[in-house]
Design a binder for these strands. Structure first.
Length: 494
RNA sequence: GGCGCGUUCGUCUAGGGGUUAGGACACUGGUCUCUCACGCCGGCAACAGGGGUUCGAAUCCCCUACGCGCUACCA
C-alpha cells in the first residue's frame, strides 16, 4: 500500500505540543512505511483566522526538522493544501449529496437551534437537532435557497443501525446511529465544517491512515457515514491518547506552556522535544529513552501506542534536554552555545560584549566548558558564564566569618604574593595554571598552618566572597591573573 | 443528561494467567569533593473497588466508581 498521512492543523498562530505529537506520529509512520507526509491547513473557521500563522507553523516544523512531502509551501499533486482555497470542491460535493438525498438544506436560524437545545436540556433530553428541515420537499427547499434564503446543509444520518470501525490504537468501536446528530456539512457562509472538509480532502488527497487526537473519536462515525454516502473507501483510523495537564484535563494554557515556540525559546533542543513527545503515548520494545529522529522512524509502531492520556511532565523534558547536552563533545557544545554569545555578524551580543572585551573569547570558551556539567539548557550555561564573569558583589556574612581571623588575612597575602610571582604567560595555559594555583595554595597553607577544608574555604571566600561556586582551579583560570590578584587585594584590604 | 474512551509508583511507562510487579523523571539516603552541582551506589513508591472464571488474576469476563473526550453554522 502507498501510505499517505496528513497533519491538518488549524492556523491558530502557534504550534501546540499536542499537535506536534500528532504530527510526529504521522511523520514517523509515513517515513517508516515509505509513504507521504502531507500538510493541510484547516482554516474553515473564518473567525479564527490568524495572520502569519501558516508561515510560523512552517518555520517551527523546519526548526524541528520534520519535513512535509506535500503542502502549501512545497506544493504537490493534490493541492491546493489550504481548505479556504477549496471551497468550490466542498460545495460541489455537497451538491452531490443533496441530489442523492443524503443531505438536506436546513433553514433553521441559529437562535432557533439555540432555543431548541435549551428546551431539550431543560427537559434533560440529549441536545440534538430535531431534523424538522429533513422533511422539507426537495423542490421547495431548492427554491427557498435560490430565492436567497440563508441555509446550511446537513447530513441525513440513518435513523437506525450501527456504525463500527476498528481503530488501530483502540480496537473495535461501535456507535448507534440514532445517537448521531444530523451534522452540518456546509455553513451558511459557504464554508464547510471540519467534518465535510476533512472527509472530502482525505479522500481526494488519497490519505490512507487518519492518525489524529482522541478528541475526534466521537465524530468518527459521522465521517464514516460521509465516506459511505460518497461511495468512497474508508481510511484506517488511529486515535492517539490526549496530552494532559498535571490535573489530567486536556492540555491547555494556564497550567503550562503548550506551545512548541515557548520550549524552543526556553532552550529545549528540537530533537529533545521530538524524543520526549514521542515517549508520551508510545513506548519502545526495550527500555531505552534516548532516540534520534532516525531511531524513532525505525522503532515506531502504532501497535505500541497506549490508550490512556499522558501528563506532559516538564521536569522530565528538562532532564532529557540535559542528557542531550551531556552527550555533546566540548567542540560541538561550544559551537552550539556560541549563537547565544555572538550575533550572526560575529559581533558579541550586548550582554556578553564586556566579557569578551575584557577576558577574550578563549576565557569565555574555557569558562563555558568548566560550567557545562549538569546544566539543563545552553541558556542556563550562558547564565552561569555571565554570572561568573560579573563582579562578585557584597561578600556573604558566612564568607566574611571565614576571613575574620588574622591567619586568614596572612594566608591571602601569601597567596597573593605567590600568584603574583607566576609569570603572565603561564596564566594563559588554563589547565597548567590551575595546577600551579593549587601548589601555591598548599604552600601558603603550610606556612600559615591551615589545610584541607579550612584552607580552600578561606581561599574561596577571599576570592569570591561566598562559600559556594565552581572549582577554584577552574575559576582562577577563567578569571586570569589580573582579576584574581585584584579580588585578593580587595579581600585583604577589608 | 447521552454517547464514546480510559484507569499499574506523584509523573512517563514495561509487563497481558504463575514476576521479589521492571525501567525512567521527581523525591530521598550514602559516596566523591574546598563548596555547590555533576557522577556513582542505594531507598521510598503502583496493579481504582467489588464480583466472577481459574489450582492460580495486575493480566480474561461482568458490575461499580472515578477521570477524560465529544455532545456548535469550532477544529
Amino acid at each position: 500500500m502507498n501510505v499517505r498521512v496528513r497533519f491538518a492543523p488549524s492556523p491558530t498562530g502557534f504550534v501546540h505540543v499536542g499537535g506536534l505529537r500528532t504530527a510526529l506520529f504521522n511523520y514517523l509512520f509515513a517515513r517508516q512505511q515509505q509513504g507521504k507526509f502531507i500538510l493541510r491547513i484547516e482554516d474553515t473557521d473564518q473567525s479564527r483566522f490568524v495572520e502569519g500563522a501558516v508561515e510560523n507553523l512552517i518555520a517551527v516544523f523546519d526548526w524541528l526538522g520534520l519535513s512535509f512531502d506535500e503542502g502549501p509551501h512545497v506544493g504537490g499533486d493534490f493541492g491546493p493544501y489550504v481548505q479556504s482555497e477549496r471551497l468550490e470542491i466542498y460545495r460541489r460535493h455537497c451538491e452531490r449529496l443533496l441530489a442523492a438525498g443524503q443531505a438536506y438544506r436546513c433553514f433553521c436560524r441559529p437562535d432557533e437551534l439555540e432555543t431548541m437545545r435549551a428546551e431539550q436540556t431543560k427537559r434533560s433530553m440529549v441536545p440534538m437537532y430535531d431534523r424538522r428541515c429533513r422533511k422539507l420537499d426537495a423542490g421547495i427547499s431548492r427554491h427557498r435557497s435560490e430565492d436567497g434564503e440563508s441555509c446550511v446543509i446537513r447530513l441525513a444520518v440513518p435513523l437506525t443501525g450501527t456504525i463500527s470501525f476498528s481503530d488501530l490504537v483502540r480496537g473495535d468501536i461501535l456507535f448507534r446511529a440514532d445517537a448521531i446528530d444530523d451534522q452540518v456539512l456546509l455553513k451558511s457562509d459557504g464554508f464547510p465544517t471540519y467534518h465535510l472538509a476533512n472527509v472530502v480532502d482525505d479522500h481526494l488527497m488519497q490519505v490512507t491512515h487518519v492518525i489524529r487526537g482522541e478528541e475526534w473519536l466521537s465524530s468518527t462515525p459521522k465521517h464514516i457515514l460521509l465516506y459511505q454516502s460518497f461511495g468512497w473507501d474508508v481510511p484506517a483510523f488511529a486515535h492517539l491518547p490526549l496530552l494532559l495537564n498535571p490535573d489530567r484535563s486536556k492540555l491547555s494554557k494556564r497550567s503550562a506552556d503548550v506551545t512548541v515556540e515557548a520550549y524552543r525559546d526556553e532552550g529545549i533542543l528540537p530533537d529533545v522535544l521530538l524524543n520526549f513527545v514521542a515517549l508520551l503515548g508510545w513506548h519502545p520494545k526495550d527500555e531505552r529513552e534516548i532516540f534520534s529522529l532516525m531511531d524513532l522512524v525505525k522503532e515506531f509502531d502504532l501497535a505500541r501506542v497506549g490508550k490512556a492520556g499522558a501528563v506532559f511532565d516538564i521536569m522530565k523534558l528538562r532532564w532529557l534536554n540535559s542528557e542531550y547536552l551531556k552527550r555533546e563533545s566540548d567542540e560541538k557544545f561550544y559551537e552550539n552555545i556560541r549563537p547565544i554569545y555572538f550575533e550572526y555578524t560575529g559581533e558579541p551580543k550586548p550582554r556578553f560584549s564586556s566579557i569578551i572585551e575584557q577576558y577574550g573569547e578563549s576565557r569565555l570558551q574555557f569558562g563555558t566548558m568548566s560550567l557545562r556539567a549538569g546544566a539543563g539548557t545552553y541558556e542556563e550555561v550562558a547564565e552561569r558564564v555571565l554570572n561568573i564573569f560579573s563582579p562578585v558583589g557584597k561578600p556573604e556574612p558566612e564568607s566574611l566569618e571565614r576571613l575574620s581571623d588574622d591567619n586568614a588575612r596572612d594566608l591571602l597575602v601569601r597567596l597573593h604574593d605567590g600568584l603574583a610571582a607566576i609569570p603572565a604567560e603561564e596564566w594563559e595555559d588554563f589547565e597548567a595554571i590551575g595546577e600551579r594555583f593549587k601548589e601555591v595554595c598548599k604552600r601558603a597553607g603550610n606556612e600559615v598552618g591551615v589545610k584541607g577544608k579550612e584552607l580552600w574555604q578561606a581561599v574561596r571566600a577571599g576570592l569570591t566572597g561566598r562559600l559556594h561556586g565552581p572549582e577554584l582551579a577552574k575559576l582562577i583560570a577563567i578569571w586570569g591573573r589580573e582579576r584574581v590578584l585584584h579580588e585578593l587585594n580587595q579581600a585583604i584590604r577589608h
